[in-house]
């Protein structure tokens, strides 16, 4: 495989603003085929926004996003939907369709895009549900599931079309240690067994280290550091060390911009 086709997603010089707030400012990033790539960063750096940009739910102010060498800004709706069929996306809160049962939620993409028989759909859906340990919950409604279970159903739904690219938005939040371990292994196993590529957005440094091939740390609208988890752990940059080791003091301020503490409590404004 030559060097060009090795890059699945390339982002060049990306700018994006939300209102007056500049979220990305000249972001450059490459996601390699067949790898698990993690995108990390402090809260509010726009990690989820980046996923929305890659899938063109929103459009950048400036810059190019190439998926398999195709500039996604040039696609019409049909082309975009064809592209999206190659993506499986796991949303932060699961985003299950509340009027459908667990089974129908997982079957939804198959019913929409394929002409498989009911019997075959049942097989595929039960297989995927089994992989996330929820075959027994097939007849339940999303409202009856716990947050972690809903996420696992959403994962089953994300992989039901056998996508080329699986995107996980904060997959580890709110999972108990057992489910977390299973999901982490599942992410890795699916990536390798099915030959797909995975993009993980998370700030769970520990889990990322065990599963990711390559990580990007985003801060202030740019890639602050990149490399394997080991490389990041050993990095000398203060920002990377602060993030990887979870320290309160460092270049990333824990406090949002505010007037002087003592002044605000005791000063003239206090009355």
């Amino acid at each position: 495989m030559d060097a060009v086709s090795d890059n699945l997603i390339e982002i060049h010089d990306l700018d994006y603003s939300f209102g007056a707030r500049k979220i990305f400012n000249g972001l450059n990033l490459t996601i390699k085929r067949g790898q698990v790539t993690a995108i990390m960063g402090p809260s509010g750096t726009g990690k989820t926004t980046l996923l929305r940009l890659i899938t063109r739910q929103i459009v950048p102010d400036h810059g190019v996003i190439l998926v398999d060498g195709v500039d996604i800004a040039t696609l019409n709706q049909t082309g975009l939907y064809e592209l999206r069929k190659r993506f499986g996306v796991l949303f932060q809160n699961g985003a299950l369709l509340t009027d459908l049962s667990v089974f129908e939620n997982v079957a939804f993409p198959l019913r929409e895009h394929t002409r498989l028989t009911n019997r075959l759909i049942r097989h595929v859906v039960l297989t995927k549900l089994h992989a996330v340990g929820l075959r027994g919950a097939a007849d339940m409604m999303p409202q009856q599931l716990s947050g972690g279970m809903a996420r696992r159903v959403a994962l089953a739904r994300a992989m039901v079309m056998d996508p080329d690219i699986l995107i996980y938005d904060e997959p580890f939040v709110g999972l108990d240690p057992i489910s977390m371990g299973v999901i982490v292994r599942l992410v890795r196993k699916m990536n390798d067994a099915l030959g797909i590529s995975s993009i993980l957005v998370s700030h769970d440094v520990q889990e990322i280290s065990t599963v990711a091939d390559c990580s990007y740390l985003i801060s202030k609208g740019k890639v602050a550091a990149s490399g394997s988890p080991d490389e990041l752990n050993r990095a000398s940059s203060e920002l990377v060390r602060q993030f990887m080791h979870g320290m309160a003091d460092g270049p990333v301020a824990f406090h949002y911009d505010a007037p002087d503490y003592a002044e605000q409590l005791l000063g003239r404004d206090a009355e």
Binding site: T55, Q57, R84, K85, F91, A95, L96, P109, E112, H113
Partner: peptide, 12 residues
């Protein structure tokens, strides 16, 4: 609850 975005992402 992101259900509409989820559909968009499933190309529906």
């Amino acid at each position: 609850t992101d259900q509409l975005s989820a559909m968009e992402m499933m190309a529906v």
